[in-house]
Amino acid sequence: MDESAINGIQSLELNGSDAAIPESRRFRCARICVEGYDTLLPRDDVDTALRKHFASCGEIAHVSIRRNAGSDLSKSTYLNRYAMIYIVGEDAEEKALALSGSDVGGWTVLVDSASPYPKDMSDDELAVIRAEDRYEGMCGARIVVRGYDDLLDADELMSTLRKHFASCGEVAHITLETDEFTATLCRYCYMYIVGDGAEDKAVALSGTDVGGWTVVTWSDPIPKVLTADELAAQRAKERYEASR
């Protein structure tokens, strides 16, 4: 992990959710949406190809490539057709958009901007994105969860999930997004759990009752060992999101 990311994470670790975001340094960060790759390719191959292709646009702070959100995620082995790339640098968005339609080793990349970016970021905000980039490639048990009512309060749902899966290990982070058109919760979320046997324990809870609704879980992807920096990064992200 680069020095600026570590410094940002340490700042969040020390100050917690009340950490003030310094205004002394600002970075221009663009977020672009890309498609065109074969969704059956390994995630790492697509990640590497995108980083090389857009390297001229600025610093690639994060490449987010998720699995397909089809009707049965538990059996999905292919990638989502869209990936998000966070690029830091002046005119990064314009440079990236100019590459739309270009060849990436046999396939044509299509590029679009992803609002509300580009925007200015502080050291800490950028550190969180860089940390997420490192973590997404080397995560602990990443568990997909569904079955909840999409009208539930997000904070209440996350609190409920933490309690229900506490026996599986440390719930380092929960990614729970809201549909921008309906303002309801997305029908599934991701939990990152650290601990021996975390994956098996979490999957074993699939089909159990969670205060009136039945939780459905499966693993995505295979769990890996976390380094101290990677675990600190995810904890820092959790506290940062809670402070916004």
Rank of each mutant, 00 (worst) to 15 (best):
L161V: 13
Y190M: 09
G195A: 04
E170C: 11
T175A: 05
S159R: 00
M191G: 06
Y190N: 07
G169R: 04
Y188M: 12
D179N: 12
F165P: 15
E170W: 02
F165T: 02
D179K: 00
D179Q: 02
A198T: 14
A202K: 03
L205H: 03
A204V: 09
L185N: 03
A166I: 11
I193P: 14
F181N: 11
Y188T: 11
D196A: 10
E170H: 05
L205V: 14
F165N: 02
T182W: 07
M158P: 10
Y188N: 12
H173A: 09
A166L: 09
E180N: 03
S206E: 06
K163D: 12
I193E: 01
M191T: 05
K201C: 13
V171A: 00
T184K: 00
L157T: 11
S206N: 05
E177G: 10
E180H: 04
C189K: 00
Y190L: 13
T160V: 14
Y190C: 10
T175P: 06
C168A: 10
K201E: 05
R162W: 10
G197D: 09
V171G: 00
K201W: 01
C168K: 02
D179E: 05
F181K: 06
Y192I: 13
L176F: 07
G169Y: 04
E199N: 10
G169V: 12
A183I: 06
Y188V: 06
V203T: 09
A166E: 11
A198C: 15
C186Q: 07
A172S: 12
Y188S: 13
T178A: 02
E177M: 08
A166R: 08
R162Q: 12
A172E: 15
I174R: 01
D200M: 08
G195Y: 01
Y188K: 02
A198L: 13
E177I: 13
L205Q: 06
R162E: 10
T182E: 04
M191N: 04
R187F: 15
T175S: 11
D200S: 14
H164G: 03
G195N: 04
C189A: 09
E180Y: 04
R187S: 14
I193R: 01
T175G: 08
I193L: 08
F181H: 06
I193A: 04
E180F: 07
E199K: 03
L176W: 02
S167R: 01
V194H: 02
T182I: 06
Y190V: 09
S167G: 09
H164N: 07
T178F: 00
T178G: 03
L205I: 12
A166D: 13
D196G: 14
C186V: 08
D179P: 15
K201I: 10
G197K: 00
L185H: 00
L205N: 05
C189G: 07
Y190E: 08
A172R: 07
A172I: 12
V194N: 09
L185Y: 00
E170Q: 12
T182L: 10
G195F: 03
M191S: 03
H164Q: 11
